[in-house]
Structure formats: C-alpha cells, structure tokens
C-alpha cells in the first residue's frame, strides 16, 4: 500500500550536509517502492507544511541539534503525526552523551572512564588546572569530544598533554560541554539494532587508523567487514551491549552502537546513535544489507514500525 511519507532532513545543524545525504537516499528508496514522498527541510515553514501535506508518517533523517535532541520529536507529538526513531525523552537522554554513558554503565555496559568538563567549569571554576590531572588519571592517549552531536565532528585524539588544551577548545566549538575519555585500543565495531534485534556487527578499518569525518564520508576510504572478524562469543557480547544500550535509553525502531573490542574481547561502548546515518557509507545500511535487508526494505520497515507504534 502506498503511503505518504514526509522525509525531514537538513536543518541548521552542523550536520546538515550528512542529514541531506541521508534524506536523499531515504526519499529515493521510498519513492522507488511506490510511496508518495515529500521532502522537507527544518525551517520556520515546517509546521505549516506538515499541516498542509498531512503525511501518514514522518521519516526523520536528521542529525545534530533540533533533529536528534527531542526538539522536532516534541513538536511532532503535539501535531500527532507518527515519526521514526526515539520519542522525546529517549532523544533528549541519548543526545547528552555524559548522561547516556552513565545510563549504559548502570545497565551493565562497559564504557570508557571519562570526565565531563563544561565551559563554565573553565570560566568560573579554574578547570584548566585539572587538565594535567585528568590526563594522568585517565592516561594518554585520550579522546576529546563534544558532549553532543555526531558524525565525529570536533573529535580529537590526544597523545601528548600539550595537545589537550587545543583539543578541548576545538570540541567546545561544537558544544558547551566536552567529554575526555580514555582511548580504548582494539577493533572498532558498530552494531545496529532494528526493532530491538541486533544486526550483524560491522568491523571498521579506517585508512589511517582514525575513523574521522573524511574516513566516514569518502566512499571506499574505510574498509568494512561483516560480520566483524571476531570470535562468536565476542560477537555475542557486542550484540548484547548494543541491545542493552538500546533498551537502557529507550530507543525505538533503529539505533547504532559504536564500540571498541579490546585484546581481551571486551566490547567498550563509545556511544549509541539513536538517529543513525543512512548515507551510502553509513554503517546501519551496511549491517542491514548483510542481514539480507536491502536499503528500500530497511526504510520501509522503519516506516512500518513507526506506524505500528501508533496502532
């Protein structure tokens, strides 16, 4: 049955470009499968356009602030339009990485030890004096990242203490709070979850060892292995971590857990993306394909889940 799907992408978030890429791909796939697709940007006309179009469902191909932090979700609740992805509460929790990491740890996931530092702590509490201590306690190398946002924007690996201040400043460009985490050495793995069930683990082998923006979005730059080349019990532990985090945060329909598996086979959960990328180089579509679900079927399944939740 043909549905009318409004695909939301873009917005004024720093991840606009990635979101537009996800949105184009989703819109093409759904329209190839016979659905009526309206593409909408996030702007002041959005509410009016939705009221006028009256779509059956809204597909959120949004990344970054407003789209991922519960802002759009909250408005769609008011408008009583079904939408894909997590509800307002889960979105808000997942958006704040320090809070989310705490919830995953409580639920039993292994997360890297880390410290959150806000701009306020530096401006008003003299946090600069603690940077050396943080480096000593967590040990180098460290990962410095903004407390909100994705696409690996603003992330720096720090292997020397003199690089710490510039890295913190760089991350502050993206968010008011930064996370300093112990860097975990091992195999990078992403496990996507579709409707509560794990998809095959994807192993990520970036060109220079760092899965940064260029490695993520340049086709062919990073090598992927599905399933990840790890023993079965480790793969099971990865899947368990992904579903535990999905449940802990209250995710819906889809999510992607990024982790590093250390030499002892322990998966360390780095973060959970509740609005995972759907571009040509994104991990969730790769995992779905490995499970025999092509991209069109994946998009359709996500739409069905959003509608079923409303039934």
């Amino acid at each position: 049955m043909g549905l009318h799907v409004a695909v939301l992408s873009g917005g004024i978030s720093l991840e606009r470009e990635v979101s537009l890429r996800s949105g184009s791909r989703v819109a093409d796939a759904l329209s190839d499968r016979g659905h009526e697709v309206s593409r909408l940007d996030l702007d002041a006309q959005l509410v009016g356009r939705l009221a006028e179009l009256e779509p059956d469902v809204v597909f959120l191909a949004l990344h970054g602030s407003a789209g991922e932090d519960g802002t759009v979700q909250s408005m769609l609740e008011v408008l009583e339009v079904p939408y894909t992805g997590p509800d307002v509460l889960a979105s808000s929790l997942a958006w704040n990485k320090p809070i989310a990491q705490g919830l995953y740890a409580r639920a039993g996931c292994t997360v890297p030890p880390g410290v959150r530092l806000s701009q306020q702590a530096f401006r008003e509490l003299g946090a600069a004096a603690t940077l050396h201590r943080v480096a000593e306690e967590l040990g180098l190398p460290l990962v410095v990242k903004p407390a909100t946002g994705g696409s690996s924007l603003g992330i720096t690996f720090v292997s020397d203490v003199t690089e710490l201040a510039p890295a913190v400043l760089g991350a502050f460009s993206y968010a008011d709070t930064v996370l300093l985490e112990q860097a975990v050495d091992g195999t990078e793995v992403a496990v996507s979850v579709l409707d509560g069930k794990p998809l095959p683990a994807v192993e990520i082998e970036p060109p220079d060892g760092v899965y940064d923006f260029a490695a993520r979005y340049t086709p062919g730059s990073t090598s992927f292995h599905v399933p990840a080349r790890l023993p079965d019990d480790v793969l099971e532990a990865c899947a368990r971590t992904a579903t535990t985090a999905y449940e802990a945060i209250g995710a819906r329909h889809i999510s992607r857990a990024d982790m590093v598996v250390d030499a002892a086979g322990v998966p360390w959960l780095l973060e959970l993306d509740t609005c995972p990328g759907l571009t040509d180089t994104s991990l969730l579509p790769l995992a779905a394909a490995a499970a025999g679900i092509d991209f069109g079927a994946l998009c359709e399944r996500i739409v069905e889940l959003a509608l079923a939740g409303r039934a």
């Binding site: 720093l14 991840e15 606009r16 470009e17 990635v18 696409s151 924007l153 994807v202 940064d212 923006f213 260029a214 993520r216 979005y217 340049t218 086709p219 062919g220 730059s221 990073t222 090598s223 992927f224 292995h225 599905v226 399933p227 040509d280 180089t281 790769l286 394909a289 490995a290």
Partner: peptide
C-alpha cells in the same frame, strides 16, 4: 565478508585519490 562502499576504487586515476570528504565543506 569485506564490503566495498566504492566498488570503483581500484579504477580511479591517481589525480582523484587525494579527493575526500571534508568537515569544513560539510559545514
């Protein structure tokens, strides 16, 4: 199984090898 996100990779000319996605351009 190794997945190729760009099956044409082995065929490109040298001059495009350094061309990659950029954070600044995305912004």
């Amino acid at each position: 199984m190794r997945l190729d996100t760009d099956p044409y990779l082995g065929r490109y000319a040298d001059r495009v090898r350094g061309m990659s996605a950029s954070e600044i351009r995305a912004l």
